[in-house]
Design a protein around this nucleic acid. Structure first.
Lengths: 113, 113
DNA sequence: CAGCGTTACCTAGACTATCGTGGTATGATG
DNA sequence: CATCATACCACGATAGTCTAGGTAACGCTG
């Protein structure tokens, strides 16, 4: 459950894809688990709404960055498992570089006296 | 002039306002100068297109975060000078905190083995 | 003095991605 | 048996950036 803060995260724009790709870089996962992973790992600093998550997954599948296949979750429930493609791995590298550069730039302005 | 990379910056979403506010925190500036400052300071890691800049300025003026007044640029040309309001200063603090938290979260996922 | 690059502002529509909110279905829990 | 968590899906609303135009004035240079 999200903390009291109710931040309609505009910042997520453009960062969500990279986060999902990176999550899948640790092995195949289903959508719901991806969202849980990102929120847990960031201490709910990054919230992944389902209305953002699933469209993002379809988008990325369409672009050939990830592939889906029906299977089972760890809890034995029907789930669609996603895994990174070779193109997805390249995309991840590219987006990581862009993020690093961008975040450094923003910090240079925002986080100085 | 931008580097060879032509990044349609989706990441800018939500970060631009904070960057502008922080720029104005260093004293009044006109729009064009704000864009130049951000691009210079970030080594073109953050590009500020005019089609994003001016709408952002109007938005923020409408919300009472900044105030405008016609004046002169350092080069003696007609320019609209913006300055931070008290509300803008509070907004800056808030957005800086959100950015810090968000960027830390993303980095926790993206920038680890 | 004509042309060009820079400064400085403005706008309309296109685009894209997130969000809100609804829905389906199953299994576990109390 | 009602509720919550898991797990997926869809649609319209919303918001902000980008593209691509435009105006105008100034300084420099051929």
């Amino acid at each position: 459950m999200p903390l009291p803060t109710k931040t309609p995260n505009a910042l997520l724009h453009g960062a969500l894809d990279a986060l999902i790709l990176k999550t899948l870089d640790g092995g195949p996962r289903h959508g719901y688990a991806i969202a849980r992973y990102i929120e847990d790992r960031t201490g709910d600093a990054v919230l992944v709404e389902e209305g953002s998550l699933y469209p993002a997954l379809y988008r990325m599948e369409r672009r050939g960055w990830i592939e889906a296949e029906w299977g089972m979750s760890e809890l034995g429930r029907r789930a669609k498992l996603y895994r990174l493609t070779r193109a997805g791995r390249m995309q991840l590298a590219s987006e990581t570089a862009v993020w690093r550069r961008f975040a450094a730039g923003v910090s240079k302005i925002l986080l100085v006296p």
